[in-house]
Design a protein around this nucleic acid. Structure first.
Lengths: 335, 335
DNA sequence: AAATCGAGAGACAACGTTGTCTTGCAGTAG
DNA sequence: CTACTGCAAGACAACGTTGTCTCTCGATTT
């Protein structure tokens, strides 16, 4: 086999096959200008030594400098929405033989910068990024690396973005509740610094205004416990809502818990933004405005690979539509 | 700024700071044998040129050859269990400034081999692997790379493994149902080629035998629809079970659906192996034997980093215990 | 005052690979 | 028989970095 000093190199293969270094390189890279018998000897040596090219050296020397690796930075794969986005990107990468460096940002701008920079330094060919911070101008210094934003646009960095039609989806949800007779519809939203939260709120706001209704609710709710507390307070207040529109996954779950605890889940309506597993098995089943995270991930990955393959041209914005899925919780009349 | 030919190199920084290449290298690597004023000039040049070391070149030259990257290969991050394992590994890596290459295997042995080899070739320092195939002997040819198996042991490759106490957990679940008066307890299991499925079945089998009860049920159920069909068939059969013990997440959900459809969810008991989000909000809430995926991921990552840091010694096996969480669905008496 | 020492800083080679150039050689035309 | 063409295959340099060696120069020792 090989020497005691690490994995076999091209030089070892060359020696073993009795040819020059460059001939091995040619065979390994599938060049056709090698005599068949030599090529066969080289391939045999490659197999017997278990040779794999050193990717660092290859990247260092090659002119195109492709690492065939992309980075994917999302908020948290533990959230089913982001898990689905991640999977879609990975599947798209897999089809192209590209590998994926991944990281969860946990809504931490510092972490976003650190990881984005580190990934760029590691010579990823591009990145899919769901930005956490308000500002992505730091990306200007990472040298023209293709980036596609997903779920949220960048603060101040022009690049392709794949977004859900948040405002339209929120408007549809709100209209749905209104059409079922509700007038006191509370909105529960995530941090207002998040673009998604603001967009969905805007859709709600416009629709309420259009119907002559008074918007109210709570913001800055990022996880289920916060949402649960907020919903509980609203239910106990003087002008309790007859329906909730929740701006996000985790908030929906918090509201669900609050309604359970108050025993109001069969009489206060609820529509959630973003679908989640088992929503159909709850009692009542939860009406949602579903996003399409798989389409978002695939679209983002495709756009990224187009950029990597040389597509220039102005930044593009891809809108992925939502779908209202009535399941029961959003179809109560007001009590 | 820099030339039109790609990102700035150490040479550019050296020229800009008026020092030699090696001095820049020393400053960048935090060596102390550089005069303060020179070091300051170098750092200024680094900042102004936005220089980042080329990690490929660094790895090529450095003696220790650490890429500060690990690979994580799991079945599917879309499954909350694996998402949690992944997160735990990533968090542990993050604390050490190590990056993560990830991939989903989808239960495909071919894909497992391809990705494991590719990751090894990409000079990851080690890997956390939930094996899909029956045999990991191919790992012998990737040259002593530290590997830690998680969730499932390897077929024929000795290495550290982090496992759930599957048999004990399954036994506890079965005992729980028996102690609530059940005698016709059906087991619904995943592919029997999976070690986890076999272990859980064994725990069920032993406990049933110990109580003098007759085991029955179905195997080879990998997703919710398959489990739903199997549960439906059992419910409609001549000796319908009064309780189900489901061997896995997705199976539990399939059973849930079958019970709903048959309107039996308030009278046929169910205990699931592995917890899942919203189990507590269903009607009835679902009793489970919870695994601890976070502990599994953290333990696996720690073991891996110990190996990477030079720990030799025989393969270790870490057992992560389960917890029975009674929530309602497992506490019905037989009807 | 000469010799020694040590620390800072540069020169050079090497890591494993690929781009470019050169060589060798067979086949063909003049 | 010489000159040219074309193609296979090797020699060599270079990618960006770090390990090792060497050099310089001022400070300390005898």
């Amino acid at each position: 086999m090989s020497a005691g000093t690490g994995p076999p190199t091209m030089r070892d293969v060359a020696r073993s096959a009795g040819v020059s270094l460059k001939t091995v390189s040619r065979v390994v890279n599938g060049e056709t200008t090698v005599a068949p018998d030599l090529a066969a000897r080289v391939r045999a040596a490659v197999d017997s030594l278990n040779y794999r090219p050193n990717i660092g050296a290859t990247m260092l020397r090659r002119s195109d400098r492709r690492s065939r690796t992309i980075g994917v930075l999302l908020e948290d794969v533990t959230n089913p929405f982001f898990a689905a986005v991640y999977r879609a990107v990975e599947d798209e990468a897999r089809e192209r033989g590209v590998h994926v460096l991944s990281g969860c940002l946990d809504d931490d701008p510092q972490r976003e910068r650190d990881l984005a920079r580190a990934f760029a330094q590691r010579q990823t060919d591009g990145m899919v990024l769901a930005p956490s911070g308000p500002d992505q101008s730091y990306l200007g210094s990472i040298g023209g690396l293709p980036i596609v934003f997903v779920d949220r646009p960048a603060g101040s960095f022009a690049s392709d973005a794949v977004l859900t039609t948040n405002a339209q989806g929120a408007a549809e949800a709100t209209r749905h509740l209104i059409s079922n007779g509700h007038r006191r519809i509370a909105f529960l939203g995530d941090h207002v610094r998040l673009w998604t939260a603001r967009s969905r709120y805007q859709g709600y706001l416009d629709t309420m205004a259009g119907a002559g209704l008074v918007p109210f609710g709570a913001h800055e709710l990022h996880d289920a416990p916060a949402a649960e507390a907020a919903a509980e307070a609203l239910l106990a207040g003087p002008h309790a809502p007859t329906a909730f529109f929740s701006g996000q996954n985790m908030i929906t779950i918090g509201v669900l818990r609050a309604l359970r605890r108050a025993g109001r889940h069969h009489d206060v309506a609820l529509v959630g933004f973003d679908d989640f597993p088992l929503a159909d098995l709850l009692e009542p089943a939860v009406t949602v405005v579903a996003q399409d995270p798989v389409a978002m991930g695939r679209t983002a990955a495709r756009a990224l690979f187009e950029r990597i393959d040389g597509e220039t041209g102005p930044p593009r914005e891809f809108q992925i539509p939502t779908t209202l899925i009535p399941r029961g919780s959003g179809e109560f009349p007001p009590s």
